[in-house]
């Protein structure tokens, strides 16, 4: 459970988020909003990459400002651009990197890496340089590298934006099958139809927080400039 308690965030003179009070406990939560509404900031607040200007964010009771290492091991984060998320030169090394804080024996690391490579169809690429993968494979690797560390919550920041239709489907499939809590920030509304809760942000405020159907309808009207009903 992630709790935001009177959270505001400002960059310089500009307010990005105003006084958010949220309890995020549902299995699948979507966050939508126009560019610049603060949704990426919200995602980064949840794993402590950004600390709030005022208020507090906690994950399972751990304050993100005080207990960042506990928060980071609980919350995995998948970024929009896998190219920046892949850290190690080869595919296998990158997966192994995620297990470093766990301090496992070498054989155990190799075993887990192989399991995850198989699960995502990357086994033949283990020793290949990561930059030779296709865009879809890179995103798969980025996701596998987050999941291998067994986080309790996985946050996805626009995971499908850079992908073609087939890869988009594949990533959506993976996200929907996860048994961890997932929080997905996206512009891809059909992604969220089977979610448990959708939060609509506009100019740093929550303007709608509901089941997907009414929330997405609200967001569509908002984006088209029609008066809200909800």
């Amino acid at each position: 459970m992630i709790r935001l308690d009177h959270v505001s965030h400002r960059y310089g003179a500009r307010d990005v988020l105003h006084d958010l009070n949220l309890d995020l406990s549902e299995h699948r939560i979507g966050v939508v909003g126009s560019n610049g509404c603060g949704k990426s900031t919200l995602a980064r607040l949840c794993n402590g990459l950004i600390l709030p200007s005022s208020g507090a964010v906690s994950v399972e009771g751990h304050d993100t400002a005080k207990d960042s290492s506990a928060v980071r091991s609980l919350v995995g984060f998948v970024f929009q651009d896998p190219d920046l998320q892949i850290i190690m030169p080869t595919v296998g090394e990158d997966l192994a990197f995620s297990l470093r804080p766990h301090r496992l024996p070498k054989a155990e690391v190799a075993k887990r890496v192989d399991q995850w490579l198989h699960a995502y169809g990357l086994q033949s690429h283990r020793d290949h340089p990561a930059h030779l993968l296709s865009g879809g494979q890179k995103q798969l690797l980025a996701i596998a590298a987050v999941l291998i560390a067994e986080p309790q919550v996985v946050i996805f920041d626009e995971p499908t934006t850079l992908l073609d239709l087939a890869n988009k489907r594949r990533i959506m499939d993976i996200v929907l099958r996860l048994d961890q809590q997932v929080i997905v920030v996206t512009h891809d509304l059909e992604f969220l139809t089977d979610f448990d809760r959708v939060i609509v942000l506009d100019q740093g405020r929550v303007v709608c927080d509901d089941r997907p159907q009414p929330a997405l309808a609200h967001y569509r009207r908002l984006a088209l400039g029609e008066p809200p009903v909800c």
């Binding site: 610049g36 990426s40 950004i50």
Partner: peptide
Amino acid sequence: SDTDQLWSG
């Protein structure tokens, strides 16, 4: 955009 905010932040 969101990334711009993050950057300046």
